[in-house]
Design a protein around this nucleic acid. Structure first.
Lengths: 139, 139
DNA sequence: CTTTCTGCAAAAAGTTTGCAGCCAA
DNA sequence: TTGGCTGCAAACTTTTTGCAGAAAG
């Protein structure tokens, strides 16, 4: 992937097959996978890659602001190639994590900054419930 | 503490000194402590209490909906005796966690439910930044 | 050729569990 | 009395780290 390689180079990160695979996989999914999920999904194509490498790569990508780490309240962190600080909605039944379009919600940052006098850097908004698919499945 | 004892009994939990101490400590702080912080702060008065007991007690209190567990994105969980699902604001400098009054923010739940067709159960809203105290300290 | 990266294994950190004895009801 | 609770130690899970060899630039 030329694009990914360029982005890595810009941050003075060496372009390795492992990094390309992880970054590429994250860029082409909407599933917000955990480190373990990434590791398992790349096992077929990269059978020698270790879980430690997945963690080190994710750490490098987060530090370079090429991906973001999110914490939906499960045991493990999830990763997202969309680096905007956008709200997520999580199905507590199937554990899928979906994006919410930012423009669908009012901007709270300015309001909170005004009320609290904090200098705000980012926010994390999570909504939990049952997704439409799981709702019909339960019935 | 009579109040706390009664709340424990209502949920068929035995009233023990350890549970009273933990519940009481959580009810009288605004600091959203972690299990470790609770353990350390009760060491003086309850030197024989183990960290495992703190975890088991917190688990029992969460299950009884007497406290809530929050996940501000740090390594460890934090606990809050305020069981309403209210937004938090976290100082990334001093790691303090503050409450935000719910009525200061618009209610997003109905809006999100309408847009996504999820059946929503709860939400977690976290704002990150530098608190006023740390802002002046840095200068 | 230098520096960074990988992959293995071991360690760390937070949390959970098994179990024997203890205590609230 | 008895079923639930405590406290200890051991286990477990996710993530981090040290290090030797491998690969990128």
């Amino acid at each position: 992937m030329l694009l990914a390689a360029g982005q890595l180079r810009e941050h003075r990160l060496k372009v390795t097959p492992q990094r390309l695979a992880i970054f590429h996989m994250l860029s082409n999914t909407k599933s917000h996978p955990s480190a373990e999920m990434i590791y398992n999904s790349l096992r077929e194509t990269h059978p020698t890659m270790s879980l430690a490498t997945v963690y080190k790569t994710l750490d490098a990508l987060v530090k370079a602001s090429l991906i973001q780490q999110i914490n939906v309240g499960e045991d493990a962190f999830r990763y997202d190639a969309n680096t905007d600080s956008h709200p997520h909605i999580i199905c507590t039944h199937c554990h899928q994590v979906y994006d919410l379009e930012t423009d669908e919600l009012p901007d709270l940052k300015a309001l909170v900054a005004e009320k609290t006098h904090f200098r705000l850097s980012h926010e994390q908004l999570y909504f939990y419930g049952t997704c439409p698919d799981c709702q019909s499945e339960i019935h």
